[in-house]
Design a protein around this nucleic acid. Structure first.
Length: 748
RNA sequence: GACCGGUUAGCUCAGCUGGUAGAGCGCUACAUUGACAUUGUAGAGGUCACAAGUUCAAGUCUUGUACCGGUCACCA
């Protein structure tokens, strides 16, 4: 009698591991397993080759981890990213590919420095200049080092099977080298230039910020209509108006035909009479306000463009800290925040205020990296020129040949257009192209200290770009590079570039880049740019974009809403496997994914189901020869159908993984295991296993064991811990490898 | 303003190239201490946002409308 009560069973089945007598408890196993995997070295493809598990000339599968900020902690977004990438990696490793997943962390220069400066001010009431560059860097370094282990430890908890021997940090020596090399090469090609252009200046952080790092906040501010000679002009920023000596209107505006381009008029202005010049320019929208405006080129991008077009003067009104300069006359020295009211008061007294619209709303630019309101300024900065034509070097990018005349913009476009890079889901192609069309030169210098210092040296108005000082009297540019400059090199700087390493040859271009759609521009596009110029290669063949993790009411997870779910808590309560699965199932590529604790809890039950399926199969097949496959002729028709069905499921799951439809793959594997294998096959097998027909018992018993093994493999990429735990308890003769991570993927 | 999504069971969503609706969770009833800190079986529940069109046939294709979400640009 096989199906007996548990007391008898223990007596009858001494070979059943005791472990199965308890429900599956993830927390008892996961850390031990991870340590075991790490110790095996199989996360490193070189070891897999050495041990004869992977063929030395096997196809490669490589992926770089989007490096989390060193100072951060793991949130569900990271959890989703790690789950998705680990599934791809484990699947490909089991398929026998040379599989490399490179881990790393990002210095996140601006965000990190901002954080440390915050602490410095809070605890010691000091600012960066009070302690100096060296001391600040020391403190930031220590802070980064300290939190680094946190995020790495958390990453391991998710089960991420990455090759830690290749761990990279954006600021370590190898990466520093790569950044210097890239900067110098681009400078020498004329693609990096230094120039005075309007930039986004953050007066709080005292640095420039790139266009992509700006966030617009809708704000309600009074909108003032001022008399400007015969005209009426509108503004929300009276404090910028001191230098406004040009009045601009559309050339076709019928209301103003009496005024000629270049004509001078006398107007009474804030601090007395001035001479204004009429400018006709098509940038002015006749529909807005009175169709007339004055311009402040130093503090507005649009105005700057108009000024450039007509070769007008520009003058700085506000300094780097937001204080009015002498041009403001009696207001000089005041901070703009305080000055506005005083200026309006004076204008009112002079009778220059026509009306005030209190209902006006507009978008105010702020620094999304923890800084304040943006004040456009004209500054000498370093830029990447995206429009400059150059002759392409050696190229492996489809549709681009050596010697072609290209710009960085065309490279960006063609890499995707010609299929060198495929984006999933493909609707993001359009977003990507749209971004390229609007792309302006990229300001890459930052006035912060934490980061890659620009390898440029100044002396007597001369500039030399090289890694080390040209000699006495040369002063290095104090600025550092935008963090995305170094991130742009990530697919190859992690492989040892600019050295011609074996890794470079083997693993670049990488197979897939997996990241959130929110950094398509920041990062994905910058990598394409850097890789195509510096290597003549695309950085990756595929881009997989995942969505944001949301709560069960479809709201963003945020601390202020109090709806965050901490992945570590969930791992502790329900296991990493359940946490992973909950982040995969129901999450279509590029779509935001809803998550609730209930969902995670549900998948813990599934882990236990696998556990019990295994327990059943092992308990009820003792005495059955599991090593020799019975001849096909001994299988019943039903059993042949079962095998055929399983192969079909494997084929579908494999296919779905390869097409990045992980949510479908996971669901199919889940459904098969529970509702076909457990509910149907095991249920119908009970009678056969209980019968006295030894041959039928043998065939069915073998089949159950076979299906168990194959299902554990199929489920492994999704739920690595529970499947490996069970694998470790299987009799040796059932396994093709001691560790499930390197067992071979079921035949399709 | 431009562009991109979405609108399908109470909730979250799936439905690829058009052939009379699916999953998970939840709910109801029944069974069960069995491999299962449970599970199984059965069931209720949907004019697939709205309108027009193409078609023998439309969640599925086309056009338009409404609402929700997002991205980018811009506002003197």
């Amino acid at each position: 009698m096989v199906l007996s009560n548990s007391m008898d069973k223990e007596a009858q089945q001494p070979n059943i591991p005791e472990i199965f007598l308890q429900p599956y408890e993830p927390s008892g196993h996961e850390d031990k397993l991870y340590a075991m995997w790490e110790k095996s070295g199989f996360f490193n493809p070189d070891v897999c080759i050495e041990k004869g598990i992977t063929k030395a000339d096997a196809e490669t599968f490589s992926i770089v981890l989007p490096p989390p900020n060193v100072t951060g902690t793991l949130h569900m977004g990271h959890g989703a990213m790690l789950a998705i990438e680990d599934i791809l990696v484990r699947y490909n490793r089991m398929c026998g590919k040379r599989t490399l997943w490179i881990p790393g962390t990002d210095s996140a220069a601006l965000a990190t420095q901002s954080k440390v400066e915050g602490i410095l001010y809070k605890e010691e009431k000091k600012r960066r200049d009070d302690i100096g560059r060296e001391e600040l860097l020391k403190r930031i370094g220590a802070f980064a080092e300290e939190s680094k282990d946190t995020i790495i430890g958390q990453t391991k908890k998710m089960g991420a099977s990455m090759d830690w021997s290749r761990y990279a940090f954006t600021l370590d020596d190898t990466r520093y080298n790569a950044v210097m090399e890239a900067f110098i090469r681009m400078y020498e090609a004329g693609l990096i230039y230094r120039g005075g252009r309007i930039v986004n200046w953050d007066p709080n952080m005292q640095t420039t910020v790139s266009d992509d790092e700006i966030e617009y906040e809708e704000k309600n501010s009074p909108f003032y209509y001022f008399k400007y000679g015969p005209f009426t002009i509108g503004t929300v920023r009276p404090e910028t108006k001191f230098g406004d000596k040009y009045v601009v209107m559309h050339p076709d505006d019928a209301r103003y035909t009496e005024y000629q381009h270049g004509q001078h008029i006398e107007v009474e202005w804030i601090n007395g009479p001035i001479t204004a010049t009429i400018i006709k320019d098509e940038a002015v929208d006749p529909e807005v306000g009175t169709g007339v405006m004055t311009i402040t080129p130093w503090h507005s991008a649009v105005d700057f463009e108009i000024a450039q077009r007509h070769k007008l003067d520009w003058e700085q009104i506000i300094d780097e800290r937001g204080v009015l300069l002498p041009i403001a006359g009696e207001f000089a020295g005041q901070h703009i925040k305080k000055a506005r009211a005083a200026i309006v008061e004076k204008m009112t007294e002079k009778g220059l205020v026509e009306k005030v619209d209190e209902t006006y709303t507009h978008n105010v630019a702020t620094n999304s990296r923890g800084g304040g309101m943006i004040e456009p300024q004209i500054k000498e900065q370093w830029f990447v020129d995206v429009h400059k034509e150059f002759s392409m070097g050696p190229s492996e990018i489809p549709g681009i040949n050596e010697g072609d005349t290209v710009t960085l913009k065309t490279l960006l476009k063609k890499a995707v257009e010609n299929g060198g890079v495929s984006i999933f889901p493909d609707r993001f192609n359009k977003t990507y192209y749209h971004w390229i069309d609007n792309l302006r030169d990229w300001c890459i210098s930052r006035q912060i200290w934490y980061g890659h210092r620009i390898p440029a040296w100044f002396k007597d108005g001369e500039i030399v770009v090289q890694k080390i000082s040209p000699g006495e009297g040369w002063v290095q540019d104090p600025d550092t590079l935008d963090t995305w400059f170094s991130s742009g090199l990530w697919t190859f700087s992690t492989l040892g570039w600019p050295e011609e390493t074996a890794d470079m040859k083997t693993y670049h271009p990488t197979t897939v880049l997996e990241t959130g759609y929110d950094i398509l521009f920041f990062w994905v596009a910058r990598m394409v740019l850097m890789s195509s110029f510096l290597l003549g290669q695309v950085p990756f063949k595929n881009v997989y974009l995942h969505g944001l993790v949301r709560d069960d009411k479809n709201r963003k997870m945020s601390k202020s809403l109090g709806n965050t779910i901490n992945p570590l808590d969930m791992i502790q309560k329900y296991g990493a496997d359940a946490t992973r699965l909950s982040l995969i199932i129901g999450a279509a590529p590029g779509n935001d994914m809803p998550l609730s604790e209930d969902k995670i809890r549900g998948y813990k039950k599934f882990a236990n189901k696998i556990w019990n399926i295994s327990r059943f199969v092992l308990t009820n097949t003792s005495g059955i020869d599991v090593t020799t496959e019975p001849p096909l002729s001994s299988f019943s028709e039903r059993e042949l159908a079962i095998r055929k069905e399983f192969h079909a499921v494997v084929a579908e799951v494999s296919n779905d993984i390869e097409r990045f439809n992980l949510y479908i793959a996971a669901e199919k594997a889940y459904h098969y295991l529970w509702h076909t294998f457990a509910d149907v096959i095991i249920e119908e097998s009970k009678d056969i296993l209980n019968s006295s027909d030894q041959e039928a018992r043998q065939v069915r018993g073998w089949l159950l064991c076979h299906l168990l093994v194959e299902n554990l493999k199929m489920m492994h990429p999704f739920m690595p811990f529970v499947t490996e735990t069970i694998w470790q308890e299987l009799p040796k003769e059932m396994k093709d490898q001691e560790l499930l991570i390197v067992a071979s993927w079921p035949k399709k």
